[in-house]
Simulated assay, not measured.
Amino acid sequence: MRRALHAAAGALVLAAAVVIPSGRAMADGIRDQQWYLKALKVSEAHAISTGSGVTVAVIDSGVAPHQDLKGNLLAGYNFAIAKPDGRTDTEGHGTNMAGLIAGRGRGSTGILGIAPSAKILPLKGGNRDNFDSDIIAEAIDYAVAHKAQVINASLKAAPSIKLLKAVKDANAAGVVVVGASGNDGDTLVGYPAAASGALGVGATDKNGKHWADSTHGPTLQICAPGVDIITTGLRNKYTEADGTSDSAAIVSGAAALVRAKFPQLSADEIIHRITATADDNGTPGRDDNCGFGELNIVKALTADVPPLSGSSSASPSASTVAPAPAASTDVAAPPSAEKKGGSAPLIVGVVVVVLLVAGLVGFVAVRRQRRV
């Protein structure tokens, strides 16, 4: 049940998952086994946002069609054979992640994802032997070019120049890259989770505490549930497993909810909103085990979050809903430009008013002198 993460750097964070039959009685009980939905107050979050209008790219082993993903699975791309369509998955890992992010279930049965109205863009990188850092970089570039707003990378790879640049470019384009830290329990957080501009995610247990096998370190920013996680599997079945892969997928779903609610925010501001509202679950303040704490989706959607230091755009509360801006306004204007444009008209206006008042006083004085 523990996700295998002892392969060479550059391999997928894959799972030795328990396959659960998809018979009617079992399917009816699937939702009850999604304990993390209640822990994260997902029903309350869905009253605010369900991720409508957001596309989440899943860079993984592909995503197989599943009854609980019907209607929100796009074609994507297969980088293993350099051809369109990432809707094939022989290992199941990508299908697992897709269900956690955007499973729609069927009424009260089946898997309910964190962002059930979001679309999934499956980007198949191949099998664990050939899914390397540069392929991940290509997939990130593809996701940005095809208008994904969130990228889920539930995998652990070594850093490369192309991968670091791809993450940087995605961040600059307003795309949130979410990465899994790894399941080795050491301090070697994998990439892209450890890359500058990405959101590195670790795992917590059912008590909201750091999971012992979750890789941690100074680049880790947040944790989310990652133990006894049930989700979509191959052939319309379900699987249960442990790992930071699941945690990253849950956070990717949360990022989709926040993006849908606050379309005007930059990628950095969305990451800031998610981390600033996390529940501290360890040593007071930030720590290497879970960064800023455990994910709190409802607070991420509703709290008044001060903007990042040096940012000229605030991260508004849920009561402040602005329409989606044009693409050219994704990046806030520098503070110096804002001050220059905002203060000059005010000064001119004050001068004009003073001159008008002075003229009026002079006119009245002259009239009075003439009347004497």
Rank of each mutant, 00 (worst) to 15 (best):
Val56Gln: 05
Arg87Lys: 13
Val175Phe: 04
Gly285Cys: 07
Ser214His: 11
Ala15Met: 05
Lys147Tyr: 06
Ala195Met: 03
Ala194Asp: 08
Ala322Thr: 12
Ser160Ala: 08
Val18Lys: 14
Lys38Tyr: 10
Thr109Gly: 03
Gln67Tyr: 04
Thr302Asp: 02
Gly342Asn: 13
Val58Ser: 01
Ala254Ile: 00
Phe262Trp: 08
Leu308Ser: 04
Ser311Tyr: 14
Leu346Val: 15
Asp32Ala: 15
Tyr191Arg: 02
Ser61Asn: 10
Ala248Asp: 01
Ala322Asp: 08
Ile20Trp: 10
Met97Val: 11
Pro323Gln: 07
Leu163Asp: 00
Ile230Trp: 11
Leu5His: 13
Pro284Glu: 07
Val176Lys: 08
Thr244His: 05
Asp89Gly: 04
Asn78Met: 00
Gly341Thr: 14
Ala9Tyr: 08
Tyr238His: 05
Ala137Phe: 01
Val352Gln: 06
His146Gly: 03
Asp32Leu: 15
Gly103Val: 03
Leu234Gly: 09
Leu40Phe: 06
Trp211Ala: 15
Asp129Arg: 12
Gly310Arg: 07
Gln369Leu: 15
Ser247Pro: 05
Asp141Val: 03
Gly29Gln: 12
Val227Ile: 14
His93Gly: 13
Lys156Asp: 09
Ala4Thr: 12
Arg128Met: 11
Cys290Tyr: 09
Leu121Cys: 04
Gly253Leu: 06
Ala276Glu: 05
Thr244Cys: 06
Phe79Pro: 01
Val364Trp: 07
Ala57Tyr: 00
Val56Arg: 07
His210Gln: 02
Ala118Asp: 01
Val177Glu: 07
Asp169Arg: 12
Arg235Ala: 13
Asn289Asp: 12
Tyr36Thr: 03
Asp246His: 14
Glu44Pro: 10
Gly179His: 04
Asp279Val: 14
Asp280Gly: 02
Tyr191Phe: 15
Val144Tyr: 07
Val258Lys: 02
His93Asn: 12
Leu356Glu: 01
Ile297Met: 01
